[in-house]
Structures are given as structure tokens and as C-alpha cells.
């Protein structure tokens, strides 16, 4: 092959339910773009079904959910299940926002791979994603 393979990380960012606080997700989207990633933003008021369908259509590597209005215990486990059912269980599922400490264990058990809570630095998120992506690509190449 004469042209090099270029594989920027593709990440879908969404907000579920009636949560319309967009400041955080917008900042994350810009930070990830600056880090050379392709961010697919689906907008607000998404259902877990919509996010799962979009994640498959877009063939993203990562699904990131911003949650600030307490729907996470209902929505996130459902999204994790829908992704698995769609054959997309290998996608990294991230959540960020207002998530109480005591909810973390249950969410992790339900299939949320990583949770960033209030005060997380965008550099921390970028570094985490870069590390994960490097490992994933090495695993795919092996």
C-alpha cells in the first residue's frame, strides 16, 4: 500500500434525556479536536437507543456521555447493554459530569469503562484516551 494508514480516534459525544447543560461537553469536544481526534456530536435529548444506533453507524471507537442531571443510573446501564446487543460492546464507554462516588461501582459493573467526575482536567481525559487508543491499536495489530 502506497499511502500510510491514518487512524484518528473517533469518539461520539452525547447527552441523554432532558439534560441540557452543554458547557462541559462543548469544552471536551474542542479539547479532543485539538488533540487530533474526530468528535461526532449528536446533540441533546438523546435516548440510549439513539446513541447506540449512532455509535454503530459512525463506527466510533469511544462513546462519551456527559451527564449533569441525575439520569445516569437509568440511562448508562441501558446504553451499555444496547451497545453490547448491537455487537458494539468493544467500544469504550465513558461518562463524565455529576456522578456521585457511591454510583461508580454500579456503573462500572454495568459496563461503563471509565468515569470522570467534576473537576476533571481536559488534559487528563486526552491522556487517558491516547493511552487507551495506543493499547487498542497495538492489540488490533497483534
Amino acid at each position: 500500500m502506497d499511502t500510510p494508514v491514518e487512524r484518528p480516534l473517533r469518539i461520539l459525544l452525547a447527552k441523554l434525556g432532558m439534560d441540557t447543560h452543554t458547557v462541559g461537553v462543548t469544552i471536551i469536544a474542542h479539547a479532543l479536536r485539538e488533540a487530533g481526534m474526530e468528535v461526532i456530536f449528536t446533540g441533546l435529548k438523546q435516548t440510549p437507543e439513539m446513541v447506540a444506533a449512532a455509535a454503530v453507524q459512525e463506527d466510533v471507537d469511544v462513546v462519551g456521555i456527559s451527564t449533569l442531571s441525575a439520569g445516569h443510573m437509568r440511562n448508562l446501564p441501558k446504553l451499555a447493554r444496547l451497545l453490547r446487543e448491537a455487537g458494539a460492546g468493544d467500544k469504550l464507554l465513558l461518562a463524565g459530569g455529576v456522578i456521585p462516588q457511591e454510583d461508580k461501582a454500579l456503573l462500572t459493573e454495568a459496563g461503563v469503562h471509565k468515569i470522570f467526575t467534576m473537576g476533571a482536567d481536559t488534559r487528563e481525559i486526552v491522556a487517558y484516551l491516547r493511552g487507551w487508543w495506543t493499547e487498542r491499536q497495538a492489540a488490533d495489530a497483534a
Binding site: A29, R33, E34, E38, I40, G43, A54
Partner: peptide, 9 residues
């Protein structure tokens, strides 16, 4: 950077 925000959806 090669990054992008794809917002048409």
C-alpha cells in the same frame, strides 16, 4: 491537528 468536530447529526 487533524481533529474535527462533526456536528451534522
Amino acid at each position: 491537528t487533524g481533529g474535527a468536530i462533526l456536528g451534522d447529526r
